[in-house]
Every structure is written in structure tokens, then in C-alpha cells.
Design a protein around this nucleic acid. Structure first.
Length: 510
RNA sequence: GGGUCGUUAGCUCAGUCGGUAGAGCAGCGGACUUUUAAUCCGUAGGUCGACGGUUCGAGUCCGUCACGACCCA
């Protein structure tokens, strides 16, 4: 057998080990034969398609398959090998699924079979042969030729325990996707959900148009959140990664694109948790001549159709709760919800700043002098109501104080035409009738600037160009924001946002 | 930011009362012509996250730090 010559094996990584060194020796031998990284293998079939085509074992018995011979060329990664002397079984995985390769020395020839025997788990191979069914009924490819297309230098994780360390699963997602079927399925689902959302929004009668607006803002706006800052060298100005696309999308509605949406990343300079990632994906849409009631209808329809068409069921298990997005979502005014779950608060106290401050203190909420009754109402809502909202619930009619971009109610001053959707205690969506009164918006911006001056570093900036756009005229418009990551969490039953982000933000490796 | 838990072979994990580091898988050598986590025989593989302390002696006890998970703010 081959002699080990470790002395001239280059170490390329700190975690280089003996197993890698052994594989490097095999790669060296392949290089010497001039067949290390071939690039001319042509694939004509895929594992998942073949499994589906021959799924019916009665129609496609071993004899029936033999009577209708089919020649295929497949390629993928070796994830399991069972050698048995002069015959071997290989589980090969491609982008669509897995299929067994039946490798017989007599069919392949002795030299080719011996070469194959030196390959490792994780190697990527290309094989040609005919479809067959083995004695035990497993669909297989009787291999006539097989080539090593890419040598894998690193072993795969334990074949039955997989990758248990979640940190490694996030850091080395490329390995996680090879060995964790559930992870692969979640990201396939995510792709289908996003694709469905686009098709559904663009279909009749909705006819939304997808647009792309700046990710780098001169003035960060559209949400109360701390931004990331960067610097543009040529212009010598600071630029802010966007916290929301809202103000640009509404500029487009001013411009006459009166049904627009954008699905893209937002960036907020905040902590990392099972519900938060510094960059996250948001759907925002704006529909002229719609009110927040119609936007609630649209939100419901969007989520219901995504569940039905992508998951195939409107009933979803999520973190121990059984959630049904099939029936109409409850719509509950924020003040009513707070009153119902806080019997100590009397209706007359809701808009009394001092009474609400006393209730907030009783609940252990830190009350800042700048808080008005609106902010206190929101704080009490978050402390006492939010976590109880398991089935889909629209909380509506938020205070003006905490809704700087939403239209004030015509009938109830101090309250906006706004809603937030909660499912299983998590905020999934936020929408409102847009504030299109430029003078009101100017006053709201000024209030935010005053709050910022008073030390609130999440408060908004004054965006004079946005006011100019409103002065040109924003039609009456309804808007919506949906956290796509959280929607995917719901629809895939994932309990951490990191399970639906391919590469979640992590501290750099030590 | 606070609390709890974790970090041991390439992977998954044991490690008792502080006394010379263990298993399965993967690897390597061998047997095996229909396996399904194949099986069987043999074999090699360790900076016990890092640093410091206690001790005759530390994977184990104490402290600090790093990274991660979960919960709370």
C-alpha cells in the first residue's frame, strides 16, 4: 500500500490533522495521474427526480425496471458507503435528494473498482449506469463507470448523530446543509415562501410592482432604531445602512407607482437573539387608495396563501403552540386589550399620563420623564398583553406618540390608523394608513428631533426631502411591513431566527 | 447588561471521591458478490477551550478570560 510521506504535506490550516493529511496524500496521487479536478462530467439525471419517477414499487418492480432499461448520468457527494468485498453500496446526495449507487467489481472492472475503494465519505463523484432495484427493494443505479470529480479533504460529521453543535452548524453552514436534512428543508421552504410572496403580490387583482430602493441612506429613516454607519470616501460623508425602506417607497407612491413592494435587507444596530439578527429581511409594500383595514385583509390573505400553498396546511406547530392562520384574524384595539388584561386600569385613565405612569411603575416598567400616555400604553401592552397573543391577532389603533409615520384617526385624536400582527407572542407585521399630511409629518419629525436631542438615540431624523415629497402630494395610502424571517420561522416551525438565516451574524471565531 | 449551562480524539459523547484519558462512528490494515447506521478481526489517534491558583498530584476544585446555547432585561 501507499507509504505515508507526511514530511512534504503542507499544513494549510490550524486544525490540520492526520485524517486531512491522509486525504491530501490521496489528492497528491490523483494530481500525479492528472485526474485531480476534472471538469467535463455531464449530468443528465437527479436523485430526487429518479426517486419520484420510480416511487410506485408495484408498477416499478425490479423486473419492470429491468424490462425498460434506463441509462443515467448522476453526480453528487458520497455520504454513506457500505463495502462488501467485490460489491459496494454508496449513498450519493445531490441537490434534489439521495440515491444508492450499486457498484459491482465485475461490471466496473478490477482497476476502476480498486481506485473507487480508496475514495472517502464526502468525495464528489459522477457515475453512469442503469436504473435497477436491489434485492431489498432499494432504487439504485447499477454503475458502469464512476469518476472522482472533487476530492474532499475533510471528513463529514458523524454519520448518525450529524452536527450537534449549533455554533458549528451556523459557522459551517456548508457542512450543516450536507448532513442536516431538516436544515436543507427549511431553506428550501424559505425560498418557496419568498417566491410565493412575490408571485402572490404581483398577481391579479393586486398587481404590485417590485422595486429596489437605496440600502445606504444619507438620513436614516422609516423606523425608530439605531443604524449602522459607514463612510463614503469620495463624497466624504457618513452613510447609514437603512433601518427601513419606508420613506423611499412612499416617495415612489408620490411618483405614481401606486402599488410597490420591496423584499430586501434592513440593518439595525442592536443585539442578537433568537428573534433578532442585525441584518434581516423585510417585505414592505404600499398601496395607494387603501386604508389600514384593507391592508389587514391583504396581510391575512398573504400569510394564509403562503401557508396553504407552500406548507400545504393552515395549521402550524410553532414552539409548542398550535396556530391556525385559516380563520379570520382577531382585530383588537390596543386600548381594549390593555384594559381587558389589566383590570386595575380604568378606562378613564388610559390617556391620563400620571395615572398610566403609576400603573407602569407598579408593573416594574422604567418610566422616563419624556414618556407620554401613548408610550406608557405601549409599554404596558408589551409587558402584559403581547406574550398572550398566540393565535394571529391584529392589535390596532396605536397612539400617535409611538407612530411617527402613521395617519392620525379622523375620529379619535391621539390615536393612529395602525395595526401590528402578533402570532405566538411575536410581532410578525406592522402597517398603517400612511400619514400624507406634510404639515403634520413635519411636526412629527420635529417631535422626533426633540426626543433625539433629549437623549433618545432611536428617535428619527428630520428628512426635509421627504417632507418636500409629501408636499408634492402622497395619495391616501396604506402600507405594510412583514418580517420575512419571522414569517419563515412561523411557517417552518423554527424557534430561532438563526435557523432560517443561512449565515446568521456571529462573533468572529477566536 | 444579568443568570444558568456547555467547551474532552476528525465527528457524537462518557469520564465516579482529585491519583497515568475511554467508547461508538470516521480513519488505517485485513475478510466479505445485494447492503440500509452492513458485519467481523486487527490498529492508530489527545495542548481535556485559554491563562492563573489550590494541591505531592487537576479533565475533575477555585478564579479570570474567550466562544456558544438557553432564559431574563
Amino acid at each position: 500500500m501507499t507509504e505515508n510521506t507526511h514530511a512534504d504535506t503542507p499544513a494549510t490550516a490550524a486544525d490540520e490533522n492526520r485524517l486531512i493529511a491522509e486525504r491530501r496524500e490521496k489528492l497528491k496521487a490523483l494530481r500525479a495521474q492528472g485526474i485531480a479536478y476534472p471538469n467535463d462530467f455531464k449530468v443528465d439525471s437527479f436523485a430526487g427526480d429518479l426517486q419520484a419517477a420510480y416511487e410506485d414499487k408495484d408498477t416499478w418492480s425490479a423486473e419492470a425496471i429491468e424490462a425498460a432499461p434506463r441509462q443515467v448520468a448522476v453526480a453528487g457527494r458520497i455520504i454513506l458507503m457500505r463495502g462488501q468485498g467485490k460489491v459496494s453500496f454508496v449513498q450519493m446526495q445531490d441537490g434534489t435528494g439521495r440515491i444508492q449507487l450499486f457498484i459491482h467489481q465485475g461490471t466496473l472492472g478490477e482497476d476502476a473498482y480498486n481506485a473507487f475503494k480508496r475514495w472517502d465519505l464526502g468525495d464528489i463523484v459522477g457515475a453512469t449506469g442503469t436504473i435497477m432495484r436491489t434485492k431489498t427493494g432499494e432504487l439504485s443505479i447499477k454503475v458502469e463507470s464512476i469518476r472522482l470529480l472533487t476530492k474532499s479533504l475533510r471528513g463529514l460529521p458523524d454519520k448518525h448523530h450529524g452536527m450537534a453543535d449549533v455554533e458549528q452548524r451556523y459557522r459551517q453552514r456548508y457542512v450543516d446543509l450536507i448532513v442536516t436534512e431538516e436544515a436543507r428543508r427549511t431553506f428550501v421552504q424559505r425560498s418557496k415562501i419568498v417566491s410565493h410572496v412575490r408571485r402572490w403580490l404581483e398577481a391579479e387583482p393586486r398587481r404590485f410592482m417590485e422595486v429596489e430602493t437605496p440600502m445606504m441612506h444619507v438620513i436614516p429613516g422609516g423606523a425608530t432604531a439605531r443604524p449602522f454607519v459607514t463612510h463614503h470616501n469620495a463624497l466624504d460623508i457618513p452613510l447609514f445602512l437603512r433601518v427601513a425602506p419606508e420613506l423611499y417607497l412612499k416617495r415612489l407612491t408620490v411618483g405614481g407607482f401606486d402599488r410597490v413592494y420591496e423584499i430586501n435587507r434592513n440593518f439595525r444596530n442592536e443585539g442578537v437573539s433568537t428573534r433578532h439578527n442585525p441584518e434581516f429581511t423585510m417585505l414592505e409594500l404600499y398601496q395607494a387608495y387603501a386604508t389600514y383595514h384593507e391592508i389587514m385583509d391583504l396581510t391575512e390573505g398573504l400569510i394564509r396563501s403562503a401557508a396553504a400553498e407552500v406548507i400545504g396546511n393552515t395549521v402550524i406547530e410553532w414552539d409548542g403552540a398550535t396556530i391556525d392562520v385559516g380563520p379570520a384574524f382577531r382585530r383588537w384595539r390596543m386600548e381594549d386589550a390593555v384594559l381587558e388584561l389589566n383590570p386595575e386600569i380604568k378606562p378613564g385613565e388610559l390617556r391620563d399620563r400620571e395615572a398610566m405612569a403609576a400603573h407602569a411603575k407598579r408593573l416594574g416598567i422604567q418610566v422616563k420623564p419624556s414618556y407620554g400616555w401613548g408610550k406608557l400604553l405601549l409599554e404596558i401592552f408589551e409587558a402584559t398583553v403581547e406574550h398572550t397573543l398566540v393565535q394571529p391577532t391584529f392589535i390596532t389603533d396605536h397612539p400617535v406618540e409611538v407612530s411617527p409615520l402613521a395617519r392620525e384617526s379622523d375620529t379619535d385624536k391621539g390615536i393612529t390608523d395602525r395595526f401590528e400582527l402578533f402570532i405566538n407572542g411575536k410581532e410578525i407585521a406592522n402597517g398603517f394608513s400612511e400619514l400624507n399630511d406634510s404639515e403634520d409629518q413635519a411636526a412629527r419629525f420635529q417631535a422626533q428631533v426633540d426626543a433625539k436631542d433629549a437623549g433618545d438615540d432611536e428617535a428619527m431624523h428630520y428628512d426635509a426631502d421627504y417632507i418636500r415629497a409629501l408636499e408634492v402630494g402622497l395619495p391616501p395610502t396604506g402600507g405594510l411591513g412583514v418580517g420575512i424571517d419571522r414569517l419563515v420561522m412561523l411557517l417552518t416551525g423554527s424557534s430561532s431566527i438563526r435557523d432560517v438565516l443561512l449565515f446568521p451574524t456571529m462573533r468572529p471565531e477566536a
